[in-house]
């Protein structure tokens, strides 16, 4: 006859193992993360923006009220892809002035040149797919001489994926002049952005001829360029 096994204290052992795993994970995390934060802010990724001919915003999006607005074109209505007719078509684009990532001044204005304005966010996976696709397409089929391609980098978030935007666009080989929006997304709001990526096609008179959001195919992009060209 065999005697019953004495009860083992497996319950305590399992909880001790679980607690040790948690403690070891904590220690390892602290040691490995000591190297520093991977999402430190990089200067120049957002800029100081001036909307119209006078009112300006600082890098954090606060409006500088010392400058007066001289009555340039109003902000475009927010883009609604579900509408059959875009109410912004025919409206003159607002004049916006800011800086590139390198600090050079850049103005987007109704200046007599047709243009495509592409709004991108570094963290947006659709932008991360669209920009390299357009880069490859433009290497094969460059923009026509009479249509300018401009980019606005907006909605910058240092904690999010693919930061900083300047490094991303450089890595892709994106050559279009890029305006750094402020932290409040003032330029994006002025152009009625509602989703990324966002395209605004402007004719030589400075009037909106088409807007689109989301990933465009190369053919769709060419069609938008043709609309801007008139």
């Amino acid at each position: 006859m065999t005697s019953p096994k004495p009860p083992t204290d497996n319950g305590s052992k399992i909880w001790i193992v679980a607690i040790v795993v948690v403690l070891v994970a904590g220690v390892v995390a602290v040691v490995l993360a000591r190297g520093g934060s991977g999402d430190e802010e990089v200067s120049g990724q957002t800029g100081t923006v001036q909307v119209g001919d006078g009112s300006s915003t600082t890098g954090d999006g606060e409006t500088d009220t010392t400058a007066g607005d001289t009555g340039s074109a109003a902000a475009l209505p927010e883009y609604d892809a579900t509408l059959e007719e875009d109410p912004a078509v025919g409206a003159t684009i607002p004049t916006v002035t800011g800086t590139t990532f390198d600090g050079d001044e850049l103005t987007i204005a109704p200046d007599g040149t047709a243009k495509i304005i592409l709004f991108v966010a570094h963290w947006c996976p659709h932008c991360q797919r669209e920009v390299p696709m357009l880069k490859a397409h433009l290497d094969d089929v460059p923009m026509p001489d009479d249509v300018q391609l401009l980019t606005v980098s907006t909605s910058v978030e240092p904690s999010a994926d693919n930061y900083p935007p300047q490094e991303w666009l450089d890595r892709v080989g994106w050559e279009a002049p890029t305006l750094a929006d402020d932290e409040a997304g003032t330029i994006a709001k002025a152009f009625g952005l509602s989703a990324f990526p966002y395209f605004v096609a402007v004719d030589a008179d400075g009037k909106v001829v088409a807007r689109a959001s989301g990933e465009l195919t190369a053919e769709q992009f060419d069609a938008v360029v043709a609309q801007a060209q008139g």
């Binding site: 963290w123 947006c124 659709h126 999010a160 994926d161 990933e215």
Partner: peptide
């Protein structure tokens, strides 16, 4: 979706 909601799309990776 074919585009990113500027506010907070589910396709954004905050941590990887």
């Amino acid at each position: 979706s074919g585009s990113c909601d500027p506010t907070n799309p589910c396709s954004t990776k905050w941590v990887e």
